[in-house]
């Protein structure tokens, strides 16, 4: 059952780590340009849902469809290629390569997808400017503040002109002011370029930047607006 017009959708996903079930019949769908918050208490399975949707983890059961293609039918290499070209990622921390400068970090997904270095870095600079951190371009991640680092990460997720950005607690390590700014910049950039954002968070104020929210509880999703 794929909702009409959805870009990425999942139906009754099951996934267990050893004996512990992480997902127990979760479903999800997102349209192009839509920002959907995945909420729920810690340990509810929201990160696992994100990992499954992004093709990082394969679910034990259930289907995931991206742009008409079944994700579980793809090989690891195909899914990697998909992540390189179609998806972008922002995590809570520890995601920037410490030895690369910020601009090189942002250019990395482009270069992994095969872009020339000069070209990739020019695009990277453009995104750093948009995220208001062009002044740290030549610095290494260890030399910038948490807020700046997170904006660099957002710039990196956007630089490869993805169709979907997966953001796992993108503001988790930031204070409210920095967090709000990062969310604002992320959602604005996503909306203006018609990028869908899957936003995993347990903070309502972060979720408020979404168009819609899905709650995960005990590995099951409840899409309230659709249910009501």
């Amino acid at each position: 059952m794929i909702p009409v017009g959805s870009l990425l959708s999942a139906d009754s996903l099951h996934k267990a780590y050893g004996q512990t079930p992480a997902l127990d019949g979760a479903s999800f769908s997102i349209h192009p340009g839509e920002v959907v918050a995945v909420m729920g208490p810690s340990g509810s399975g929201k990160s696992t849902l994100l990992h499954c949707l992004a093709g990082i983890v394969t679910p034990d059961r259930g289907t995931i469809t991206y742009a008409g293609r079944e994700l579980s039918a793809m090989s690891d290499a195909e899914r990697s290629a998909l992540r390189r070209t179609e998806f972008g990622f922002v995590f809570q921390f520890g995601q920037l390569v410490p030895e690369l400068t910020c601009v090189e970090n942002v250019a990395l997904p482009l270069r992994l997808a095969g872009a020339k270095r000069k070209e990739a870095e020019r695009t990277a600079r453009h995104w750093l400017e948009r995220l208001e951190v062009d002044d740290v371009a030549a610095k290494r991640p260890g030399e910038v503040s948490g807020g700046q680092g997170q904006r660099v990460a957002v710039a990196r997720s956007l630089a490869g002109s993805p169709k979907v950005i997966f953001a796992d607690e993108p503001t988790g390590a930031l204070d409210s002011l920095n967090g709000e700014r990062v969310m604002q910049l992320l959602t604005e950039a996503a909306r203006s370029t018609n990028v869908a954002v899957v936003l995993v968070t347990h903070e309502a104020r972060v979720a408020a930047y979404s168009d819609r929210d899905v709650t995960v509880r005990d590995g099951r999703t409840r899409d309230l607006e659709h249910a009501v």
Binding site: S80, R83, V97
Partner: peptide
């Protein structure tokens, strides 16, 4: 470890 996982998440090839 964590950084490597992140790199894999955004599609870095093993060979890279």
């Amino acid at each position: 470890k964590r950084l490597l996982s992140v790199l894999v998440a955004f599609g870095t090839r093993r060979s890279t």
